[in-house]
């Protein structure tokens, strides 16, 4: 099952975040709780974790991109 990895909303005021780094690449197997990417907003850098086990199929945002909350950053093939 395909699932979307999106820019999280980390505070009530947050509108967007800068994708600082992908910590996993296309084709990588990831486990729930593993850090997927780093995002900066309002002087806070967060490591965002995978919510499911699966394979990171496609990255849709590049490092350095300022992405709105809810924007799709990657596609994952979730494993049951």
């Amino acid at each position: 099952m395909k699932i979307e990895v999106t820019m999280p909303k980390m505070s009530p005021e947050m509108r967007s975040g800068v994708l600082c780094a992908w910590l996993k690449g296309e084709g990588d197997r990831v486990r729930k709780g593993e850090a997927l990417f780093e995002v900066e907003t309002e002087k806070v850098v967060c490591q965002v974790e995978a919510e499911r086990d699966g394979v990171l199929v496609r990255l849709l945002a590049e490092e350095g991109d300022d992405m709105p909350v809810g924007a799709v950053l990657a596609e994952m093939e979730a494993q049951p």
């Binding site: 850090a35 806070v44 850098v45 967060c46 490591q47």
Partner: peptide, 21 residues
Amino acid sequence: GRNDLVAGGRKFSGNAQYRIA
């Protein structure tokens, strides 16, 4: 109200954070 501490309208402290698991 954002990230800084001020005195007399001028900044004397900047603040930042990071989060890991």
